[in-house]
Design a protein around this nucleic acid. Structure first.
Lengths: 211, 211
DNA sequence: TGGAATACATTCAGTTTCGTATGTATAATT
DNA sequence: AATTATACATACGAAACTGAATGTATTCCA
C-alpha cells in the first residue's frame, strides 16, 4: 500500500484538514485520533506515520496558516505608504478581510482561542501565540514613532502608549468578533468603522479640527 | 457518615476550590473527577452528590466569582461621579486591581480563557462569556452618551463608536495581561498608564490642548 | 529486477474515565 | 425513639483512547 510522494503529501494534507474540522467541532482534547482518521478516510496508522502525536498534528495545523499570514505581516513591515497610520489601518482591515474570506484561517483561530487547553504539551504553544503579538507590538511602536516623526500623529500622544493601545484594541476586536461569529453568523459591519475610528482618533488633523 | 448542613456546604466549597486548582493546572478536559476528589480530600461519590457532572462543577466555579464582580458592575452602573469618563477609568482600574489581588478571580479567568474547550455541553458556557461583554458594551454606550451630553467627551467623537473601541480595548488588555502573567509573573505597570491614556484620548480637554 | 525502505492498515494490551448502583453511618424529623 | 432522608464512600461494568507492535503491498533505488 505504498503511495507515491505526491500521494503521500496529499494524505498528510487531508489528515491536517480533517484534524482542523474535528478540532473545531469537538475540541482538541475530545478529538480522538481515531475520529480524525475516520474524517480523513484513513486509519490511525496513517496519522501516527505522519505525526508523533496529537500535539504535533496541532502544530502542523497551526503552521499551515502562516502562508496566509505572512503577506499581511509583510504589508505591515514595509514602509511604502506616506502615512504610517494608513499602514496600520490597512493591516487591520486586511486581517479582518482574511478572516472573513478564508474559512481555514478563521477555523484555526477559533480552535486556538476556544477549543484548546494550553496545558502540558500544549503549554508551549501558548508562546507561539504570545510571540506574534509581541512582534506586532514592536512593529506598532516603530510605525507610531514614524508617524510622530512625519507629523501624522497628534502631537500630545506618546507613540509607545499608542502601540499598547492598538495592540489591545486589535486583540479585543478579533476576540469579540470571533465570539459574535460563533454565536450568530452576522457580518458585523461596524467592525470596519470601529477600526477606522480607532486610527482616526490618533490622527493629527481630525475631521473637524481644522487648525 | 452524614454531615451537618454547615459541614456539607464546607465540602461543597472545598470541591469547587479543588476543581479550580485542578482545572488551572491540568485543563478542564484532562482533569478527571477522580483527581478533583483527591485534591479535595473526598471521593468521586461526594462530587456526584453535589454536582451532576463536570460541566455543572465548572458552572459552579464560574458563578463563584460573581460575588467579586458584582460590586465592580455596580460601580459602573451608578452615576455618582460628575465626569462619566472617570467612571470608566475607575472601573477598568478596579478590574485590574481585583485581578491582581484576588488569585481566585485570576485563576478562574485563566481557566475560562486558556484551559477550557467550548464544545458540546460547554458551548452554552460561551454565552455566559458573551453576555457580560454585551452588558458592558450597553453600559459603555450609556456612559459615553452621558459624557457627550455633559461635554466631557471630545465633540467630534461618536459615543457608540467609542463604546465599541473601549470594549475591544478592555477585552484586549485583559487577554494580553493574563498571557503575560502566564508566561512570566511580572507586574506589568504600564497597563494602568495604558488605561489612563485610553480614556484621556477621549477627553475634551487633552493635557496640552488648553483651548 | 530484486531488495530495501516506505506508507500505511490491522491488531493488541493496557490505562483511564465515566456513570451508576449499592452500602452505610449519621443527622434530621416526627 | 424509631424512622427517614442525607451525605457521602465503595464497588462495578462498560466504553474510549493511546502507543506500540506487527503485517503488507508497493515504490523507489541500485
Amino acid at each position: 500500500m505504498r503511495k507515491t510522494k505526491a500521494e503521500t503529501e496529499q494524505t498528510r494534507v487531508e489528515i491536517i484538514d480533517a484534524a482542523r474540522r474535528a478540532f473545531h467541532k469537538f475540541g482538541v482534547s475530545r478529538t480522538s485520533l481515531e475520529k480524525v482518521a475516520q474524517m480523513a478516510g484513513v486509519t490511525r496508522g496513517a496519522i501516527y506515520w505522519h505525526f508523533d502525536n496529537k500535539a504535533m498534528l496541532f502544530n502542523a495545523l497551526r503552521d499551515q496558516i502562516q502562508t496566509t499570514l505572512n503577506p499581511l505581516d509583510a504589508g505591515l513591515t514595509s514602509d511604502d505608504t506616506p502615512d504610517p497610520l494608513d499602514t496600520i489601518e490597512k493591516f487591520l482591515l486586511g486581517f479582518i478581510d482574511a478572516m472573513e474570506n478564508n474559512p481555514l484561517l478563521r477555523q484555526t483561530f477559533e480552535i486556538m482561542m476556544w477549543r484548546c487547553e494550553y496545558v502540558n504539551e500544549f503549554a508551549s504553544v501558548l508562546y507561539e501565540i504570545v510571540r506574534p503579538r509581541h512582534d506586532f507590538l514592536s512593529e506598532l511602536k516603530i510605525i507610531y514613532a514614524r508617524a510622530a516623526d512625519r507629523g501624522f500623529l497628534r502631537p500630545t500622544l506618546d507613540p509607545e502608549a499608542m502601540a499598547y493601545d492598538t495592540l489591545s484594541f486589535t486583540t479585543g476586536i478579533i476576540h469579540n468578533w470571533l465570539i459574535a461569529l460563533g454565536s450568530a453568523h452576522e457580518h458585523c459591519p461596524q467592525i470596519r468603522a470601529s477600526i477606522h475610528s480607532h486610527v482616526a482618533l490618533r490622527r493629527r488633523d481630525a475631521i473637524s479640527e481644522t487648525d
